[in-house]
Computed example of a mutant assay.
Amino acid sequence: MLHQLLTALGDRIENDDRGDVPGWVLVTIMTAGLVVGLWAVAGPRLAALFTTAMDAVVTQL
C-alpha cells in the first residue's frame, strides 16, 4: 500500500511540467533591467567607439 502511494506520488511529481513561472518572470525582468542600465551607461561610449572604428576604416580606403 505504501509503495503504491509513493510510486503514484513520484509519478505525479515527475510529470508536473508547470515550472516556476514567478521565478522566470523575475529573472526576465531583472535581465531586462540590467541590459537597460548597462546600455544607458555604455551606450554613448559604444557609439563613439563604433564611429571611431568606422572613420578609421573609411580613411584607409
Rank of each mutant, 00 (worst) to 15 (best):
F50Y: 03
H3C: 12
I29T: 02
A40Y: 01
T59W: 05
L61C: 07
Q4R: 15
W39V: 05
L26G: 11
N15C: 08
H3T: 15
V57M: 11
L61S: 10
D17G: 08
Q4T: 09
L49I: 06
M54N: 08
L2M: 15
M1K: 13
A48D: 09
T52L: 04
A8I: 10
L61H: 06
I29H: 00
A40V: 02
R12S: 10
D55N: 13
H3G: 12
L34H: 03
M30A: 10
V27W: 08
V58E: 13
V57F: 10
G43W: 02
I29A: 01
M54D: 05
N15T: 12
D17R: 11
M54G: 06
A53G: 02
E14V: 11
D16P: 07
G19C: 10
L2P: 15
L61A: 09
A56E: 04
V27S: 12
W39G: 03
T52C: 02
T52M: 03
L5I: 15
M54L: 12
A8E: 14
A42F: 14
L9N: 12
L49E: 07
V57D: 09
L9C: 11
M54Q: 09
M1V: 14
G23F: 05
V27N: 11
A53F: 02
F50A: 02
V36K: 00
M30V: 09
G19W: 08
L38N: 06
N15D: 13
L2V: 14
P44G: 06
A42N: 10
L6F: 15
A48K: 04
D20N: 14
Q60L: 15
D17F: 12
L38Y: 08
G10K: 12
N15S: 14
G19F: 07
G37L: 06
M30D: 05
T59N: 04
T7V: 10
T28I: 09
R45N: 02
P44V: 03
G10N: 14
V25M: 08
T7C: 09
I13R: 12
W39I: 03
A53R: 03
R12D: 10
V25R: 06
E14W: 09
N15I: 05
T7N: 14
T52W: 05
V41W: 04
M30Y: 04
D16R: 06
V57N: 07
A42H: 05
A48Y: 03
R18D: 10
T59Y: 02
V58L: 11
E14C: 08
V58Q: 11
G10Y: 13
V36R: 00
F50C: 00
I13P: 04
I29W: 00
H3W: 14
L26S: 13
Q60T: 11
A47Y: 01
V21H: 12
D55M: 07
G37I: 01
L5Y: 13
L2Q: 15
L5R: 14
P22T: 07
W24P: 02
